[in-house]
């Protein structure tokens, strides 16, 4: 049975930067200082009107393929919740933009903050079943396109960005066992109600008043922050126990923890609740914001490049969010 390893990760961000000061200027009661101290975010990248998640995906993938023989890629998996079209699948368009071979299998999957864990799990199973030898796993999202200009809370949290990872077969397994979970009963706590086939996009949608002076419409992203927080603090401790048990490890054996970088407030509370030491826990979205499916690979790349983790270290990855959907695994660097 073939084993798997993350070979390389690259990220790509759009050019436009939205700072906290810019948000505070538009919305004076929204304190720039508070956004940074509580959310741990100072600025985030935002796409141009004519720039899409597929464009970001292309740039991130091109970067990672500069150092890799693209003819070796035999599977392309793209995780996005901002596809260019209902159909065709963005991954098919990405295959041709990247000049990948026609022997490549390609598909999209629609998940948010748990996406990287699912992508790694899919990659591992394709490699271990010999259906693929070299996988390009791309995560790309542009939530900014779905957030109302008057929804300052979500504009403060989310940023656009993409990552591309190469996962290839390897003699030793660096991707350990996975645990996944789903609770669709929370589907309407993080949702874009209109634009699918159930509720069509409205031309003149009604403006809805949200908490703390924020506004949106049913064409836009809606997030019930307190309920998402409740879901997270309820689910994550069990997820951590389950992934440790499945891998026959105890928490002290894990060298480093990378959770989905939702926001600093949530991560600080989770870390305290799980009694994970500060120096073993990644918490940094200062310049990117919450980039949804890309936060984990962005963090992992940062940790590897800046030697926060060393070769041979065991790192726990844990993703959770929209769906609700969650997953965790342990990888060896």
């Amino acid at each position: 049975m073939s084993k798997s390893k993350i070979k390389n990760i690259e990220s790509y961000f759009p050019k436009n930067i939205l700072t906290n000061d810019m948000i505070s200027e538009e919305f004076p009661s929204w304190s720039s200082k508070n956004i940074e101290s509580k959310l741990g975010i100072k600025s985030r990248y935002i796409v141009d009107q004519n720039e899409t998640a597929l464009d970001l995906a292309y740039h991130a993938a091109s970067k990672v393929l500069r150092k890799y023989d693209r003819s070796k890629i035999d599977f392309l998996i793209l995780c996005t919740q901002s596809p260019d079209y209902f159909l065709p699948t963005s991954a098919c368009i990405l295959q041709t933009k990247l000049n990948l071979g026609k022997n490549v299998g390609a598909f999209d999957f629609n998940l948010g903050c748990s996406g990287y864990i699912y992508g790694l799990g899919l990659a591992k199973s394709l490699l271990s079943s010999n259906m693929a030898k070299s996988i390009l796993l791309v995560m790309s999202d542009t939530y900014s396109k779905h957030i109302n200009k008057l929804d300052f809370a979500n504009r403060s949290i989310f940023g656009d960005g993409a990552t591309a990872s190469i996962i290839e077969s390897n003699e030793i397994d660096h991707l350990y066992e996975f645990v996944f979970g789903t609770d669709g009963s929370g589907f309407n706590n993080l949702i874009i109600p209109n634009g699918g086939v159930k509720n069509r996009y409205e031309d003149n949608p009604k403006l809805i008043e949200l908490k703390n002076g924020n506004m949106n419409t049913n064409n836009d992203l809606y997030m019930n922050g307190p309920e998402i927080f409740n879901f997270t603090i309820e689910i994550i401790p069990k997820l951590i126990d389950d992934v440790l048990e499945k891998n026959k490890k105890n928490i002290e054996e894990i060298d480093y923890f990378i959770f989905h970088q939702a926001n600093s407030f949530m991560l600080n509370y989770l870390r305290k609740k799980l009694r994970i030491p500060k120096d073993k826990f990644y918490n940094n979205i200062l310049e990117t914001g919450n980039t949804v499916s890309s936060t984990i690979p962005i963090a992992l790349k940062d940790c590897m490049e800046n030697e926060i983790v060393q070769s041979g270290d065991l790192v726990m990855l844990c993703g959770f969010g929209v769906g609700y959907s969650w997953g965790a695994t342990i990888i060896k660097i």
Binding site: N34, K38, A153, K211, N212, G225, P226, F229, N230, I233, F265, M266, Y269, K272, K273
Partner: peptide, 15 residues
């Protein structure tokens, strides 16, 4: 009082 007030209260009750 802001959105963090609500989250902090949830965290306090949980902890």
């Amino acid at each position: 009082f802001d959105s963090f007030f609500v989250l902090t209260t949830i965290a306090f009750i949980d902890e």
